[in-house]
Amino acid sequence: MNKPTLEETQFWLKNVLIYKGNLHEKLVKARSQTGYSMDDFIKKSNSIHPAQRLGIYSAGYTMRLVECMKASFPILIDFMGEQFFDTFADAYISTIPSTSWNLFDLGAKFPEFLEKTKPNASKMDINPDIIEIPIQIAKFERAKSEALHYEGSEKKKQISDPIFPLFGIDFENTNFQTPKCLQLISLEFQVHTLTPNSKKPPIKKKTLLAISRHQYRMKILELKPWQFELLKALKSNDSLTESILSTSAKTTIPETEIKANLLTWITVATEHGCIYIR
């Protein structure tokens, strides 16, 4: 066989690292894909066996990325235990290898992965909540990461005037915006109330949350349906008037009532990093 080229070398080593299984299984699969074996690549020495050298990279690949994910899902680890988390994270990394240069993107699809791979509770004769709660926690924790990462309103003009609500809002001419870091999520369980070492599972209750930042501090706000719909509308268009119209249509709450509610809610929304004036 000819000496492998640089491209063939990288193809082989990448596959050995990323394939599922132990090192032997990875090498067998890599050989079937490339025709090359470890002996074609790894220089021998007396001190360390080539398999051990390769094992440093192979084992390190998953270990490193699982460690990165642990930093992003502490509540989930606390709830399901480290061993279970490692198993799921390992499966995720093996199934969906990273394609981004940014490790921030590593856990982005983890909640979706848990959702798509969840077992059928009825066939297993277990409480379906046990399967659903970790998915909800993952979704919540990912949303928190995104709220910390994206641009907030810290460098934007804030609604600071305390008499603003008393004199009313100029709905036509005031340009309300939502910051990029604002995350709106709908949960089936109140996972945001979980604390470290929580002995009790979260209450099963549909919950709408805004997760954002104010002065770089994480803010989590429970929302009523009209607040959720209004913020959702504002995320996709600049016009407060249109957002109120769309919210009214979705919630059947009259526009005038939404406007009146907004007057009393706007300070809270601002202090939780949900809205700012452009």
Partner: peptide
Amino acid sequence: WTGFAGKNTHDLLPLP
């Protein structure tokens, strides 16, 4: 090198 064929290992891999 850290990746190949669009996959990123997030490791600093040796070159021949």
